[in-house]
Each structure stands twice: as C-alpha cells, then as structure tokens.
Amino acid sequence: MEMNEVKRDQDVSLKLFIVLSRALEAIEKQIVKNVKDYGLNLTEFAVLELLFHKGDQPIQKIGQKILLASSSITYVVDKLEEKNYLVRKACPTDRRVTHASITDEGKKIMEDIFPRHKEAMSKIMAGLNTDEKEMVVEKLKKLGLYAQQLD
C-alpha cells in the first residue's frame, strides 16, 4: 500500500469508528426510551430478555452474555428480584453456582414487552431496508470477529 492509500485507510478507519459509535448511541437512546416505559432500564431488560429466551442462567455468566461487568450483575439481579421478575435458585449439581430464573410475573411482562420491543426495533432500524440491514450485519460481524482475533 502506498503512503496516500495508508493515510486514506487510517482516516476512513477513524471515521468508521466515530460513525459506528454515534449510530450506536442514537439507537441505544431510542431503545432506552422504549424500555423505560415498562419501568425497566436497559440492563434489566437485557437480563430479562436473556432469561425469557434462554431459560435459567448462572448469575456469574449473565454479565458475559449481555456484555456487562460482573460487579453490576448482582445489583441488577437484586433489582429484578425486588420487582418479582426473577428468583435466585441454587444449582442442583454445584452448590457454588446460583442461577437466575425468570418468574411467572417476569414471563408475563416479557410476553407483553417483547412484541412491542421488536416493533420498536423495526422502527428504529427503518433507516435501512432489509437487504441493507443484512449487509450491515454481515460486515459488522466480520469486523467484530477480526477485532476479536487480534488479542
């Protein structure tokens, strides 16, 4: 790659990062507004969504699955337990592990919220058509996998 091409690549890489960050920020802002209507914050919603779709989860693993620091998980689980949306259950095979389990009340609220959430996501993402969304998903997945393997 010649010098001009290297500089152009660096400039476009920086611009891509900024555009991705701003797009994510704008999208998250809309999602936060949407889940706030249900008396949840984004993290609480993410935990409930995980339990709703994947079933009981070890509390220690939830943070990895929703990209949250493990120190924050206990607080979020406490809040959801106070709202009666989940309960802690001892793991039957390993006493050191505690699972989070969605309650009937938690399931009920997710059955109400999730269809509306899907609808809201569709509206938020309506700036792209379906083919463009599929292409962006493919490209971002490729970029993410590449960045992961740099470790």
Results as ranks from 00 to 15, higher is better:
76 V>E: 12
138 E>R: 13
142 K>P: 00
55 G>A: 06
132 E>Y: 03
58 P>W: 05
107 K>L: 07
46 A>Q: 14
14 L>Q: 02
38 Y>N: 05
48 L>F: 05
14 L>W: 00
95 R>A: 14
29 K>L: 09
6 V>N: 00
45 F>H: 10
12 V>L: 04
95 R>S: 14
14 L>D: 03
134 E>H: 05
67 L>Q: 14
36 K>L: 13
79 K>S: 11
94 D>S: 05
30 Q>H: 08
13 S>D: 04
28 E>N: 10
140 L>S: 02
117 H>I: 13
37 D>P: 00
96 R>L: 11
111 E>K: 15
2 E>L: 02
12 V>P: 00
5 E>T: 02
67 L>A: 14
77 V>G: 03
35 V>Y: 04
99 H>G: 04
18 I>P: 00
120 A>W: 05
39 G>D: 01
30 Q>C: 09
36 K>T: 11
31 I>R: 00
136 V>H: 00
95 R>G: 09
56 D>C: 06
6 V>I: 12
61 K>H: 14
81 E>P: 04
138 E>Q: 09
37 D>M: 13
98 T>I: 14
107 K>H: 06
20 L>F: 04
48 L>W: 03
108 K>E: 12
92 P>T: 06
80 L>T: 00
135 M>K: 12
129 N>V: 12
127 G>L: 10
18 I>L: 08
78 D>Y: 10
99 H>W: 11
132 E>M: 09
11 D>K: 01
42 L>S: 02
59 I>W: 08
50 L>C: 02
62 I>Y: 13
20 L>N: 04
81 E>N: 11
128 L>R: 03
